[in-house]
Nucleic acid binder design. Sequence first.
DNA 1: TCTAGGGGTTCCAGCAACTGGAAGGTCAAG
DNA 2: CTTGACCTTCCAGTTGCTGGAACCCCTAGA
Lengths: 128, 128
Amino acid sequence: MNIGEIAESCGLPAKTIRYYEEIGLVRPDRSENGYRNFSEQDAHKLAFLGRARSLGFTIEDCRTLLSLYQDQSRASASVKQIARGHLADIERKIEELQAMRRALQTLVTRCNGDDRPDCPILDGLSGD
Amino acid sequence: MNIGEIAESCGLPAKTIRYYEEIGLVRPDRSENGYRNFSEQDAHKLAFLGRARSLGFTIEDCRTLLSLYQDQSRASASVKQIARGHLADIERKIEELQAMRRALQTLVTRCNGDDRPDCPILDGLSGD
DNA sequence: TCTAGGGGTTCCAGCAACTGGAAGGTCAAG
DNA sequence: CTTGACCTTCCAGTTGCTGGAACCCCTAGA
């Protein structure tokens, strides 16, 4: 399969797939004409990567997960550890964002948003 | 004030303050010896920037907010618009993260995390 | 007077994970 | 034979810093 087809099938942009090859996540063969030639295995890997990335795993986590995926003698504990680490990161980020949201919401609510200069948002940012 | 003192007072690393100068957010004078010499005004600006950044505003938003802050004839509506846009971004990100969290949580819960290879997390990522 | 230290300066490289664009090769259809 | 849709490589840019090298400045102590 050419890169266009595979991109279509896994939902990743061709650019991204080339990038994944560059950093060694996939290693498609090449046809006579120099075009990348993806196998079904590659298609699977890329779909796997797409899902892992969409769950927010870093590229390095993806690399590890992929190798665990391909390692029949893995321990599921290794996978779970990575996933839980990532889950903790996500939860931390959610909390950070919620704190921002609360603070910002407070300021926004107080601001009239009219044509006058008086502005509680700027006041808040300037330290009152 | 030298960069060290100002960094101390606003809580931003000196590196960051130099970077802010580089991109034109502050323009401290220079002493005879070439050291940056920050005024009280600069201190205020940097504190403002620190707070805006900690609420997640982009640098470009900060630039705009700063100019509105210094513009006595601003309309508070302009400020509110930026803040609401940013709030919407934050809310979108929170939702994305929460979706990730839910999906990941489900997989993690199902995984035994023992020394056997059987792993619902990898199964989920591989598309079952 | 020398030296050590703790400031400060510039400039360059690198992070994550792509994305855009230029310049050009390949292929099938009309 | 040309057109257009593919594909290729390579380089630069994104965001907001951060680290490090190599160097200057200033003060205090031996």
